[in-house]
Structures are given as structure tokens and as C-alpha cells.
Amino acid sequence: MTIAVSTEKSPIYLKSYLLFIGLGLIAGVITRLSDFFPNDDLWSFSSIATLFGFWMLTVTLVIYFSTSNINAAINVFLYLLSMNFAFYFLKYVLGFFFPIFANGGTFQWNLFMLYNIIALVCSAISYVLYYWNKESKLSNFLYALPVSGLAAETIGVGMYLYHHHIFLFQFIFDFFSFLLLGFWFYQKTKNKIIYSLTLVAITPIGYYFYYYPFL
């Protein structure tokens, strides 16, 4: 019976893997092409590739729409792996045509492997975060973690925007991502006090340990 159930689920898992590989490739291409925009003007459209708001939001959505802990871990890894490949392979190809992408005609294997290792770490974290679906007290804490990350980046980028007059696009993206994801998860959590307290406690920690030194 277990084998039958597992066989029935296999096509579903395969479809999800192919879906997130495709989405990762699209994300890698879009973020690489954003490098055609300047990174030091008011809007700084290319900041979507260099800061973490876009990745926190999309990885959170990948986890949410997965079907199990293992499925979430694999989906996130495949999403980030395919994104990394598209991001660095496209840079290698564009380097033959545009000087801003030139890297001596070589593929950036060092960065590609580094971010694949980070993808593995994110995959392990995704396995744990999926427990928010268990509707336990722990889920209220887990729901607040990605929202806290977005809140911390929103504050950090907002401060950077105020002092240096760049990253307006990233600030708008982070702010609305924080509002939408924060309200959505607030509605889903069973214990809103634990969720809110976690958000209040983790946000300043993320801000001071990561974003504050760069201001």
C-alpha cells in the first residue's frame, strides 16, 4: 500500500521539481538582466539581485507551496540551484557581447559553487520552516521568521535610502512584501501573540547584526 501511494505521489513531486527548476531559471535570468540598470542611482533596479528581499520572499513561497518537509527542501534547493546556474551562465554568455559582464572569458565557478553551498543551507532551513504547517506552537514562531527577515531588510534599506539616496526600488519591494507576507501569515497563525512577539524580537536582531554595520 505504501508503495502504491508513493508511486501516485511521484508524478506530483516530479511536476513540482520541474516547476521550481523553471522558476529558478527565470529568476536567474531576470535578476542577471537587471544588471543592465545602474546600481547607484535613486531607483537602483539592479539591487534586486544583490540584496535579499526578493530571495526571502520567493523562497518562502516555494516552502509554502510545497507538500512536505522533504519536498520543501528539494524544491528550494532546485529553485536556488537553477537560479544560480542561469545567473552565472548568462553572465558568462553576455560577457562576450557586453563589457560590463566580461570576466576574462571565464565562468565564475568560485561564486557559483559558493552560492550552491548556500542553497544547501537554505534547503536545510526550508525543511525546518515547513513545520509551520503542523499547527503547533512552534509554527507561530516559524511563520514570523521570514517576515522578520523582510522587516529587518526594509528598515535597513530604508535607512540606506535616507542616507545615500539609492535603493528606492528595493525599499518599495521589501516594504510591500513585508506587508503582504506579514498580514497573510498573521491571518494563518493560531497564536498571534507568539507570532507578534517573535516578529518584534527577531527584526531588530536581524537589523543590527546584518544591516546596521553597512549604514
Score class of each variant (00 low, 15 high):
Gln187Asn: 11
Ala86Asn: 01
Ile125Pro: 00
Met83Arg: 04
Tyr162Trp: 14
Thr60Ser: 14
Pro146Ala: 10
Ile202Thr: 09
Leu138Arg: 11
Cys122Gln: 11
Ile155Ala: 11
Gly105Met: 06
Tyr79Phe: 15
Trp132Phe: 15
Ile100Glu: 12
Phe107Cys: 01
Phe173Arg: 04
Pro11Glu: 10
Trp109Tyr: 11
Ile155Val: 14
Thr60Gly: 10
Leu197Glu: 14
Phe175Gly: 07
Ile48Val: 14
Phe65Lys: 03
Leu199Tyr: 05
Phe54Glu: 01
Ala73Leu: 08
Ser47His: 11
Pro204Phe: 11
Gly104Pro: 06
Ser47Val: 07
Phe209Trp: 15
Leu81Cys: 00
Asn110Thr: 11
Ile63Thr: 05
Phe178Leu: 15
Tyr162Phe: 15
Ile205Ala: 11
Ile166Asp: 06
Ser196Pro: 02
Lys137Ala: 08
Gly24Asp: 05
Tyr13Val: 07
Ser123Trp: 07
Trp132Ile: 04
Trp132Asp: 11
Phe65Leu: 10
Phe36Ile: 07
Thr67Ile: 10
Leu111Asp: 10
Asp41Ile: 10
Glu8Tyr: 08
Ser46Asp: 05
Tyr115Glu: 06
Ala27Lys: 00
Leu81Lys: 03
Lys134Cys: 01
Cys122Lys: 08
Pro213Thr: 10
Ile205Asn: 06
Thr67Met: 13
Asp174Cys: 14
Thr198His: 05
Tyr17Pro: 00
Val93Cys: 10
Tyr160Gln: 13
Lys134Gly: 01
Val59Met: 14
Trp55Val: 06
Val59Ile: 14
Thr2Asp: 13
Leu14Asp: 00
Ser10Glu: 12
Thr31Arg: 07
Phe96His: 11
Thr58Ala: 11
Asn69Gly: 14
Thr7Phe: 09
Phe167His: 09
Ile3Ala: 15
Thr154Asp: 03
Leu14Ala: 11
Trp55Tyr: 14
Leu57Cys: 04
Thr203Phe: 01
Phe36Ser: 03
Asn71Ile: 07
Phe97Gln: 07
Val62Trp: 00
Ser16Glu: 12
Thr2Met: 12
Phe173Tyr: 14
Ser136Trp: 03
Tyr88Gly: 00
Ile194Cys: 06
Tyr208Asn: 08
Gln187Met: 12
Ser136Lys: 13
Ile125Ser: 13
Ser47Lys: 09
Tyr79His: 01
Leu90Lys: 01
Phe97Asp: 05
Phe98Glu: 09
Tyr208Trp: 14
Leu168Met: 13
Ile63Glu: 01
Asn191Tyr: 00
Ile3Arg: 15
Phe52Val: 06
Phe65Trp: 13
Val200Tyr: 04
Leu114Cys: 05
Ser139Glu: 04
Ser148Phe: 01
Phe77Trp: 12
Glu135Ser: 14
Tyr13Cys: 03
Phe52Arg: 11
Leu179Gln: 07
Thr67Pro: 00
Ile70Cys: 02
Leu94Met: 10
Trp132Lys: 09
Asn75Lys: 06
Tyr212Glu: 14
Ala124Tyr: 13
Phe37Arg: 02
Ile194Ala: 12
Asn116His: 04
Ile63Val: 15
Phe173Trp: 14
Leu215Asp: 04
Thr198Pro: 02
Ile194Pro: 06
Gln108Asn: 15
Gly53Ile: 02
Leu14Glu: 07
Leu168Val: 03
Leu19Lys: 08
Leu57Gln: 02
Asp41Gly: 13
Ser46Tyr: 05
Ala72Lys: 03
Phe97Asn: 05
Ile30Thr: 07
Tyr130His: 12
